[in-house]
Nucleic acid binder design. Structure first.
Lengths: 121, 121
DNA sequence: CGTATACTGAACCTGATGGTTCAGTATAGA
DNA sequence: TCTATACTGAACCATCAGGTTCAGTATACG
């Protein structure tokens, strides 16, 4: 049903589900950085960092460009637009769900009143 | 620095990084459901679904209650507030980053002009 | 040229994930 | 009481994730 391009959200939420990668995004927010700078900053090997950057790149959150020996990483143009949209949609869904519960709660309250119950709040 | 409760975001973004689990959230948005109902809906074993629900519960997105034989799952009270906040923060970071790059801004402007688009900025 | 730097890729390791089956336990209902 | 339902837990399996090491390749620079 809503299965068509879920893979994309899989990739992006998956990419965000790692604190090192969120840290890298934060770092890149402060300025572009090379793989080795990021590796040093997060205390891991170049190879390890390169994998993380690869994941972020795959998800569309960063882009990289190699000039000479150095591969520079920067925030991608895509940003977090779709993820924000997804989350917002679900926040509304949540709200709607609990609005419904509020109605139920109100009904219960009415019943309580009808039954003469003065339950304190 | 912002390392203290990152584990929490790891769990929640991790939980969202699976289309079955996002599907379960959507389903629960339409109404509470038992484990077996969800298992059937997503065509997997009870045990498999129970694990997914466990992950969502761990992340705070759903709560469950067992009455008699049936464990009923519903959306948790926590919602996606913190995740939305995180994403929003980074969207601003993104925006700030690209505001700083007037080169890009100029390029976009040029394109707009080239395409005769009068989009206001 | 020679050497240090910056990355790349393959191979490997360990633990987590997403699933299954199978053998229970507990409860609902005839 | 008997049986079907609904879940639970342990065990297993294949694959992926996050990391490493090691052996390259390409480039900067004295």
């Amino acid at each position: 049903m809503v299965q068509y391009r879920q893979t994309h959200l899989d990739a992006s939420f998956g990419a965000l589900g790692d604190s090192t990668r969120r840290g890298v995004l934060e770092q890149l927010g402060r300025g572009d950085a090379s793989i080795s700078a990021l590796a040093e900053r997060f205390q891991m090997t170049l190879t390890g960092m390169k994998k993380h950057v690869g994941v972020l790149e795959q998800a569309g959150f960063v882009t990289t460009e190699k000039v000479g020996r150095v591969r520079t990483c920067k925030l991608g143009l895509r940003g977090l637009k779709e993820e924000a949209a997804w989350i917002e949609r679900y926040r509304q869904l949540w709200a709607a769900r609990f609005d419904a519960l509020d109605v139920v709660a109100q009904e219960l309250k009415q019943k309580e009143i009808a039954h003469g119950r003065k339950k304190r709040k």
